[in-house]
Design a protein around this nucleic acid. Structure first.
Lengths: 192, 192
DNA sequence: TTAAAACGGGGACAAATGTCCTCTTTTAGC
DNA sequence: GCTAAAAGAGGACATTTGTCCCCGTTTTAA
C-alpha cells in the first residue's frame, strides 16, 4: 500500500525519495470499514485524505432525508471538504466509505508545513482544486443542458470503474434524478 | 478606479503600498464595451482579470445555440477560466462584458512572478479557487435538490446586485430553466 | 445460516417543465 | 428622436419526471 503512494507521488509530483518519505512520515494511516462515516454534518473537517484502496463518496442530504452525491473518489485520489478544512467551520457534508478503505491523512497544519518544505506541493494542491472546479463546472453545464440519457452515458464513459462498484440508485443520486427516471433510461436502451 | 483596486487589495490581502504598487505596475488596463467578448471558445485564456467597474459573465453554449451561464462577476471580483489558463489549452467558454467594463489583466507568467515576490498572493488565489469550488458545489446541490422557486429566491437573496442588472432570461439561464418556467414562478408569487 | 435490509424494475397517476407560438412593451444605439 | 432588436408574458400542447405503490431478487450482517 505504501508503495502505491510512493508510485503515485513520483508519477504526479515528481518528488525525490526523501520528500516522499517526509510526506509519508507526517501522514496518519487509517482503515475505514464499509459504511463508516469519515465526516458528518456539524463536524469540522480536519484532514486532507489520500485513498490507498477502497472508495469514498462526498454527499449532502436535504431535510427530507434525500441524499445528493457530489463526488466519488477511489484509489490514488484525494478527498477533503475544503470549505470546512480551510475555515475551520462545521461542514454540511458527509464523507462515507463505500468499501473497506485505507487512507493516509494529513492535518491542515501538517500539510502547510509540508508545503513549505516541498514547494511543488503547493502548486500541486492548487492544481487539484482547479481541476475539481473545472469538473464541477462541467457538471453544472451538463446538468443544465444535456438529457438524462446523455449524462448517464457520460458517467459510464468517464467513470467506468466507479460505475461498476456502486448501486444504481447512487448513480441516480449523482445525476440528480430519481431511480425511476434512471430505470426508464436503461429500459429504453435495452429495447434498442 | 485605481484607488478602488488599492482599497480592495488592502482590505482583502493586506499588502503594503509597495506591493500593491508592484501588482498594479504589472497589470494591463483594459476597457471593454457592453457585449464585447473577452474570451471565446477555441481561444486560450491568457489572463487573470480583476473587475474595476462593470460586469462580466462566463457561459457556454450547446450545439443548438442555447446559452448556459456559469458565473457572473462584478466590481472588485476576479474572473478567469482556470482550466484554459493553467494548461494553455483552448477554452470551451465565453467571457462577455454585460456592461461597459474596466479591467486589470495579468498574464499567468506575470502573476506567477508576483506570487514569488508576494507570497500571500499564492495563498489568496488558492482561496479564491477554493471558494469558487464551494460555491459551484453548492449550486450543484441546489440544482439537484431544490425547487425552481427556491433557487430563484436564493439567487435574488445571494446576488441582489447582479439580479438588478441583468435581464430575466439570464437569470433563467443561470438557474438552468427556460424563461417560461421562470415566468411561471414569478406569476405564482405575484398572485400571493 | 438466516432474517432483514437493500436493490431495482414496473404500473398508474399527477406535477413540473419545455417548445412553439403570438403579442405588447421596453431598450439600445445610430 | 427613431427604428430595430430585445425582453418578457401567456396560451396550447407534448414530454419528462417524480411520487407512491407493489413485487421479486440479491446481498448483508449478526
Amino acid at each position: 500500500m505504501a508503495d502505491d503512494f510512493n508510485t503515485y507521488i513520483k508519477r504526479n509530483i515528481n518528488l525525490n525519495d526523501e520528500d516522499i518519505q517526509l510526506m509519508h512520515s507526517m501522514a496518519l494511516e487509517k482503515k475505514a470499514h464499509r459504511r463508516e462515516m469519515l465526516l458528518q454534518p456539524g463536524d469540522v473537517c480536519r484532514h486532507k485524505m489520500f485513498i490507498l484502496s477502497g472508495m469514498v463518496r462526498l454527499y449532502r442530504t436535504r431535510e427530507d432525508g434525500s441524499e445528493h452525491i457530489m463526488h466519488f473518489a477511489t484509489e490514488n485520489e484525494w478527498m477533503t471538504e475544503p470549505e470546512s478544512l480551510n475555515h475551520g467551520t462545521p461542514t454540511a457534508y458527509y464523507i462515507e466509505a463505500l468499501e473497506d478503505t485505507e487512507l493516509l491523512l494529513w492535518t491542515k497544519r501538517d500539510f502547510t508545513q509540508l508545503s513549505i518544505a516541498i514547494p511543488q506541493l503547493k502548486t500541486y494542491s492548487e492544481n487539484i482544486i482547479a481541476k475539481n472546479l473545472a469538473m464541477t463546472r462541467e457538471r453544472v453545464f451538463n446538468t443544465m443542458s444535456a438529457t438524462v440519457e446523455e449524462r448517464y452515458d457520460d458517467f459510464i464513459r468517464d467513470y467506468p470503474d466507479v460505475f461498476n462498484r456502486i448501486p444504481l440508485h447512487m448513480v441516480a443520486s449523482y445525476l440528480g434524478v430519481s431511480l425511476k427516471t434512471l430505470t426508464r433510461v436503461r429500459q429504453a436502451q435495452v429495447k434498442r
